[in-house]
């Protein structure tokens, strides 16, 4: 989708050539590419990603920073739920690997994983939001409401985030579940499991206290890497549920060829993925005391 923002402006407002050139100059687009690049990098290091073409005169950085918490709210909630569901399902299906439950959960989670998320979101919005009216159709909070307590506020946030989070969880828990299940299968072959069983520990105790606790390590490591998948998912869910996060910002910027905004969003998202990986590494120490950095 080549073209410049000035083209879009010019078509929308029917600009004269002079006006178009003035806009080009205003954004510094008349400089050579190298100069533009150099200036951009220089400013980017100071946290300034330029001005948005669409939300002029808003700064890209402020715009993104105001959208980021909403995205993180969705992503983090969804990931916690995914990990919990995967932990339980994965441990249980590995306990009787090859059994009926194992086969069914694997079949279902693979099927959900292979389903396009935006399609799930469309269906969820239509069926649960529109037809049944259980969930709000758009937005991240009820507009124009002053909350009595912070509890109501959080409740309203969750009420609006429920559908997006649900779609993210349903579509993406399968990845964790597979990892959990596969490690659990190998963990269950360890001698210490046999020992635990021999000394008479109950099945639940063996399953969760002995096996699953150790088997969850690879799954936790994958949280960092899978964070970027959740970010991708949030683009679709935010777009379809009109949720004002970074994902929706990206979607709008694509249509308006708002390149500074796109680059800024991409940069911030990459940073958040890296930070997530760092946090996972730190968390790992507590989960696996053998690891020392």
């Amino acid at each position: 989708m080549p073209g410049t923002a000035a083209d879009i402006y010019a078509t929308a407002g029917r600009m004269t050539e002079d006006e178009r050139l003035a806009i080009v100059a205003r954004f510094g687009l008349d400089e050579s590419l190298w100069v533009q690049f150099y200036t951009y990098i220089g400013r980017a290091f100071q946290g300034d990603f330029g001005q948005s073409f669409t939300y002029f005169p808003s700064n890209v950085t402020t715009k993104i920073l105001s959208a980021l918490p909403w995205s993180l709210f969705l992503i983090i909630n969804a990931m916690i739920l995914q990990v919990i569901i995967a932990f339980v399902l994965g441990a249980t299906s590995a306990w009787k690997a090859g059994g009926k439950f194992d086969a069914t959960t694997q079949a279902i989670s693979l099927a959900l994983w292979a389903t396009p998320m935006f399609w799930l979101a469309m269906l969820a919005l239509y069926l649960l939001g529109n037809d049944l009216g259980w969930f709000p159709l758009a937005g991240q909070q009820t507009p124009g409401v002053t909350y009595a307590t912070w509890f109501n506020k959080i409740g309203d946030y969750y009420y609006h985030a429920a559908l997006p989070i649900m779609v993210l969880v349903v579509n993406q828990f399968g990845g964790y579940q597979l990892i959990m299940r596969n490690t659990m299968v190998t963990t269950l072959r360890e001698h210490y499991i046999t020992t635990a069983e021999a000394k008479g520990a109950s099945d639940t105790r063996v399953k969760y206290k002995h096996a699953a606790r150790n088997a969850m390590l690879p799954m936790v490591t994958s949280v960092g890497l899978r964070f970027s998948l959740a970010v991708a998912g949030s683009i679709f869910t935010e777009m379809i549920f009109n949720y004002n996060g970074v994902g929706r910002l990206i979607f709008q910027s694509v249509g308006m060829r708002d390149y500074p905004m796109l680059q800024g969003c991409f940069f911030i998202l990459s940073c958040s993925v890296i930070i997530a990986n760092l946090l996972v590494d730190i968390l790992y120490q507590y989960l696996d005391p053998r690891i020392r950095y």
């Binding site: 990206i250 694509v254 680059q263 990459s270």
Partner: peptide, 10 residues
């Protein structure tokens, strides 16, 4: 480590 979909979009 880069988020693939945002990268592809950009």
């Amino acid at each position: 480590i880069m988020p693939r979909l945002p990268l592809l979009i950009v």
